[in-house]
């Protein structure tokens, strides 16, 4: 399970993010190495999604530095960050409801149109369901299919780092298992680095190589997925009762 960490792909050092006067991130230090699955767990309102959004530059960090593959991306606009090779499957999936599955996927490739056909084939291999539904409008898909589409759309831009914001949100347990299996496959077979924010701590920790625990805008714990899964503090706060 514990793979030797490669070169650091993404590092955040001392990142503070504010919404107006409210400090949502209070100094985050975090690393994601090439080839890893890293997950960030925490309660509602801990700032998990804010952290992910800050990575994408919306909102931008007020203090601190975010470095991706050796380049400081802290002050870059979102569209430029995506073009550097970071793709995001946003919270609540946010697929385009009136567009067909195929059009959704094509929009994912809007920053990398050259590899469109190749990537489309890859996404259809990962999610055969999307191929069946390719002419259907996004809004008519089931929740699980929409999540597949959101991940597939993110993969279309040929990212090196895939950001997932709560991929299990509102899905049935069976569907969650499917989605997590695909995330594992993408990581293992394609060497995709994944950084994932999750509420479903149990599953996320089992999938991830490493994990961070976030409380009130601060990272309080870090370790391997398996290590945190065994940690009594984590068990008490996030795992027991729920599962």
């Amino acid at each position: 399970m514990d793979r030797a960490a490669g070169d650091p792909m993404l590092t955040m050092t001392g990142v503070h993010t504010f919404y107006g006067a409210i400090e949502a991130l209070k100094g985050i230090d975090l690393t994601v190495a090439t080839g890893e699955i890293v997950t960030l767990i925490g309660a509602n309102g801990a700032g998990k999604s804010t952290l992910l959004m800050t990575l994408c530059g919306a909102p931008q960090a007020r203090y601190g530095r975010i470095v991706f593959e050796g380049e400081d991306i802290t002050r870059l606009p979102t569209c430029q960050i995506v073009r550097r090779g970071i793709a995001q499957s946003p919270e609540g999936r946010r697929i385009f409801p009136r567009m067909t599955v195929l059009e959704n996927l094509q929009l994912g490739a809007i920053t990398a149109p050259a590899s469109y056909a190749e990537e489309l084939e890859r996404v259809f291999l990962l999610f055969p369901r999307l191929k069946e539904r390719s002419a259907q409008r996004g809004g008519t898909l089931s929740g699980g299919e929409q999540q597949m589409l959101a991940i597939g759309r993110a993969l279309m831009s040929r990212p090196r780092l895939l950001l997932l914001d709560e991929p299990s949100l509102g899905l049935a347990p069976l569907v969650i298992r499917q989605i997590f299996q695909v995330i594992r496959d993408i990581n293992r077979d394609h060497g995709m680095t994944v950084f994932m924010v999750e509420q479903n701590a149990h599953r996320a920790l089992r999938l991830a190589h490493r994990a961070y625990v976030m409380v009130n805008g601060l990272i309080t714990l870090t370790g391997t997925g398996a290590g945190l899964l065994a940690n009594p503090e984590v068990r008490a706060a996030y795992l027991e009762g729920g599962h």
Binding site: P90, I95, L107
Partner: peptide, 24 residues
């Protein structure tokens, strides 16, 4: 064309639009 597609994406969901690297 990409521009027209981006417009339609903007109409559907402008946050998703940014997430895809479209310059709004």
């Amino acid at each position: 064309l990409p521009l027209g597609r981006a417009w339609e994406a903007l109409r559907e969901d402008d946050i998703a639009c940014t997430a895809l690297g479209i310059n709004r």
